[in-house]
Amino acid sequence: TFTSIVTTNPDFGGFEFYVEAGQQFDDSAYEEAYGVSVPSAVVEEMNAKAAQLKDGEWLNVSHE
C-alpha cells in the first residue's frame, strides 16, 4: 500500500522519499531506493497529487 502526505518541513536527514512542488514522482528512483516496484496506477496518483503542490510544499511518499 502506497501513501503520501503533504509537508512544508521535509526531513532530508531520514530515509524518506519526497516530491518537490513542480516535479513529478520518479518511480524509477523510488524503486531503486526501496527495491519496490511501483504500479502505474500509483505513479499516476502520486503525479496528480504532486501537481497540486504549492511552492514550499513537498509530497512525502511511503509504502507498507
Rank of each mutant, 00 (worst) to 15 (best):
V6D: 01
T8H: 08
N9Q: 12
N60D: 03
A33Q: 15
G13P: 06
E16S: 14
E57Q: 10
I5Y: 15
W58M: 10
W58E: 02
F25G: 02
A48D: 14
Q52S: 12
S28Y: 11
G22A: 04
G35E: 05
F12P: 06
E32K: 15
G56R: 04
D11L: 11
A41M: 10
G22K: 05
N9M: 11
V19S: 00
G14N: 09
L53R: 00
N9H: 11
G56C: 05
E44K: 11
V6Y: 03
K54G: 07
E45F: 08
T3D: 05
V43M: 06
S37K: 15
V43F: 05
I5F: 15
A48E: 13
S62Q: 10
S37Y: 10
T8F: 06
D27C: 15
P10D: 02
G35R: 06
N9W: 08
S40V: 13
T3F: 14
S28Q: 14
S37V: 11
D27Y: 15
G22T: 04
D55Y: 12
F17N: 01
T3M: 11
A21H: 10
E20M: 13
A48F: 13
N60F: 14
E16P: 06
P39F: 01
N47C: 07
Q52Y: 06
V38H: 00
M46E: 04
N60H: 15
E31C: 10
G56P: 01
E32T: 10
Q23A: 13
L53C: 06
E31Y: 15
P10Q: 04
D55T: 14
T3C: 13
A21R: 07
V6H: 03
G13V: 07
M46F: 09
S62F: 14
Q23I: 04
S40G: 10
D26F: 04
S37D: 06
P10N: 02
E57V: 05
F2L: 04
M46V: 09
T3W: 14
D11H: 12
F25H: 03
G35N: 08
L59Y: 00
D55M: 08
V42N: 02
E64D: 11
E64K: 14
E20H: 09
K54T: 08
S4F: 10
E20A: 14
K49P: 08
Y34R: 06
S62R: 15
G13A: 11
E31Q: 13
E16Y: 15
A50R: 00
H63K: 01
A33T: 12
P39L: 04
E20V: 06
M46L: 15
N60L: 15
V61D: 00
V19M: 06
Y30V: 01
T1R: 13
A29Q: 08
G56W: 02
G22D: 02
G56V: 02
W58A: 00
V36R: 00
V6G: 03
V36A: 04
E64I: 14
N47T: 11
E57G: 02
D26H: 05
V61K: 00
T7W: 02
N47D: 07
V43D: 02
S4H: 07
Y18D: 01
T7K: 03
N60P: 00
L53M: 06
F25L: 04
I5N: 10
D26C: 07
V36Q: 05
Q23Y: 10
K49F: 12
S4K: 01
G14L: 10
S37T: 14
E57R: 00
E57N: 03
A29T: 05
S28H: 15
D11N: 14
P39S: 05
A50C: 09
A21M: 09
A29R: 10
L53H: 02
Q24F: 12
A33H: 12
S37F: 10
G14K: 11
G22M: 05
T7S: 07
E45W: 11
N9I: 08
T7P: 00
Q23E: 09
Q52C: 11
T3L: 11
A51S: 10
K54R: 11
I5M: 13
A29S: 08
V61H: 02
G14W: 07
A50T: 06
A41R: 11
A21G: 05
N60C: 15
Y18E: 01
A21E: 04
V42E: 04
K54E: 08
V6I: 12
G56L: 02
E64Y: 13
K49T: 09
Y34M: 08
S62N: 07
D55N: 12
W58G: 05
S40L: 13
D11A: 10
N60T: 12
K49D: 07
K49E: 09
N9C: 14
F2K: 00
A33E: 07
G35K: 07
V36N: 02
A50L: 09
F12S: 06
F2I: 05
V43R: 09
G35Y: 04
Q52A: 13
S37W: 10
W58C: 05
S62L: 10
Y30A: 00
A48M: 13
A29M: 09
V61C: 04
V36K: 04
G35A: 06
F17C: 07
W58V: 03
F15Q: 13
F12R: 07
N9R: 10
V19D: 03
E16W: 14
S62I: 13
G22L: 05
S62A: 09
S62D: 05
Y34K: 08
V6R: 00
F25V: 01
F15E: 11
L53I: 02
G35F: 05
F15K: 14
T1W: 12
S4V: 09
Y18H: 06
D11G: 06
D26T: 04
K54I: 08
L53N: 04
F17K: 00
T8R: 13
D11Y: 10
G14Y: 06
Y34P: 01
N60E: 09
W58R: 01
A50E: 03
L59P: 01
G22C: 07
S28C: 14
M46K: 00
D27N: 14
G13R: 10
K49Y: 10
L59M: 06
K49A: 14
E31G: 08
N60Q: 15
A51L: 09
P39K: 00
G13Q: 10
K54A: 09
E31H: 11
S37E: 10
E57T: 05
L53S: 01
G56S: 04
V43P: 00
W58L: 00
P39C: 07
V42I: 11
F2G: 00
D26K: 06
S40T: 12
G35S: 07
P10A: 04
A51C: 08
A50V: 08
S37L: 10
K49W: 09
D26W: 06
S40N: 10
V19C: 05
M46G: 01
Y34T: 09
I5H: 14
E20N: 07
A50D: 07
S28D: 09
G13C: 15
T8E: 07
E32P: 02
L59R: 00
E31M: 12
P39V: 03
S40Q: 14
Q23M: 11
E44H: 10
D55Q: 14
Y18M: 03
E32C: 12
D11R: 06
V6K: 03
L59V: 01
D27I: 15
G13T: 14
P10V: 04
F12Y: 07
V19H: 01
A51Q: 11
V42S: 02
M46Q: 03
Q24R: 13
I5E: 10
E44V: 10
A41E: 13
V43E: 05
M46W: 11
T7A: 04
V38Y: 00
E64R: 10
E45P: 00
F12C: 08
D26V: 05
F15A: 13
A33R: 15
Q52R: 05
E44Q: 11
S40M: 11
F17V: 04
D55R: 12
T1A: 11
K54Q: 10
G14M: 08
N47W: 03
F15C: 15
V19P: 01
N47S: 07
D26G: 04
A48I: 13
D11C: 14
A41N: 12
S37Q: 12
E31S: 12
A33V: 10
S4Y: 12
V6T: 07
M46S: 02
D26R: 05
A29E: 07
A41T: 11
E44P: 00
A33W: 13
E31T: 14
T3R: 07
M46T: 04
Q24G: 09
G35P: 01
E44S: 09
L59E: 01
D55G: 08
Y18N: 03
S28V: 15
G56M: 04
S40K: 14
A48V: 10
F15N: 15
N9F: 09
G56Q: 03
E44I: 11
S4G: 12
T8Q: 10
Y34I: 03
I5V: 13
F2D: 00
E45S: 08
N47H: 03
H63M: 07
A41W: 15
A29V: 08
K54H: 09
E64W: 11
V61I: 13
D11W: 11
E32N: 10
V61P: 01
L53W: 03
E45C: 10
A50M: 03
S40Y: 11
A33S: 08
D55C: 11
G14C: 12
T3H: 14
V61L: 04
A29D: 05
K54M: 08
E45K: 05
S4R: 00
N9V: 09
E44R: 09
F2W: 15
